[in-house]
């Protein structure tokens, strides 16, 4: 389990990191939490000649909120997110963060890394999709914001250019009356990759019963984390009842595109349905709190 040979770079600022990445291009790999990169290096599935470590770049760590929404630095760890208070809708994300790998992994793994590796089962992707997150991608002198729903391409692949660095995740401000929840099914209770995961975020009208908007996102049941758009749409304008949730859950199961790699597609779909139901029910509870 030896690592390939590379040089180690530890820029102190985002700007410096961007300049390095511009110089190295695809010969370089960014190192944030390292929980995925070190394994890929050991397996030699990536063999960069340069590693650019971000652990001194503190400007992309932590939380900041203003009137428009919440900004989460890409280097913020899963443990930090799990401990944060992101409100009744944002708890979809905190719940997901608290179920990443193990406490040891959570102290290392970053939210940015969880997205950049573009794994279908990435725990934090579904809640971020459901929360309408976008990501900010940085390169020298340039910055672009990409909706997370436009970010993933295929397993391991996303839209970033080799020289780009993800600096933060933006969560738009949600109206009052929103609630969110995350459900993960694994074989064990820790150290698990999801068999299926579902995040749901709903917003209720003032009556506390009518659903104004609902977003349901699925993990591990398609080549990329995905939004179950029809399922969410089916709830709009409807009452938040068990029956309507069941209908939406059924639609979500149909929308999933399981590849049958770890469990059969039949089982994956059944689980999408079940976890969607549970996530919606808990999201409603959160919205009503």
């Amino acid at each position: 389990m030896l690592l390939p040979k590379f040089d180690y770079n530890a820029p102190a600022t985002l700007d410096e990191a961007c300049r390095m990445m511009a110089g190295y291009g695809d010969r370089a790999k960014l190192l944030a939490g390292g929980t995925d990169l070190l394994i890929a290096l050991k397996k030699k599935t990536v063999t960069p000649t340069q590693v650019v470590a971000l652990n001194r770049v503190d400007e992309i760590k932590g939380f900041l909120s203003d009137g428009d929404g919440l900004f989460i630095g890409a280097r913020t760890t899963a443990a930090e997110i799990a401990l944060s208070d992101l409100g009744p809708a944002g708890q979809a994300l905190t719940q997901a963060a608290s179920q990443v790998g193990s406490p040891l992994i959570r102290n290392l793994a970053t939210i940015g890394g969880n997205l950049v590796t573009a794994m279908p089962a990435a725990d934090m992707a579904p809640p971020l999709l459901a929360l309408q997150a976008s990501v900010v991608l940085q390169r020298i002198g340039e910055q672009r914001e990409v909706l997370l729903s436009d970010f993933f391409i295929s397993p391991g692949e996303q839209v970033m250019l080799p020289e780009e660095i993800m600096s933060m995740i933006v969560l738009p401000r949600l109206p009052e009356g929103c609630g969110g929840a995350f459900e993960k099914l694994g074989v064990r209770k820790a150290l698990e990759r999801s068999i299926v995961s579902v995040a749901a975020v709903i917003s209720l009208a003032d009556d506390g019963r009518t659903i104004q908007g609902a977003r349901i996102a699925l993990g591990a049941v398609a080549p990329t984390p995905m939004l179950a758009q029809e399922a969410g749409a089916a709830l709009c304008g409807r009452k938040a009842t068990a029956k309507n949730f069941a209908v939406a859950a059924e639609i979500a199961a149909r929308e999933a595109k399981p590849r049958g790699l770890r469990t059969s597609p039949v089982y994956s779909r059944l689980m999408v349905e079940q976890l969607t139901l549970r996530a919606l029910t808990r999201a409603l509870e959160a919205a009503n709190l």
Binding site: Y8, L31, G34, T35, L38, I39, V51, A53, P103, L104, I105, N107, L108
Partner: peptide, 8 residues
């Protein structure tokens, strides 16, 4: 606490 096998 962290996994030292995943840190350079």
């Amino acid at each position: 606490p962290v996994n030292s096998c995943l840190i350079l």
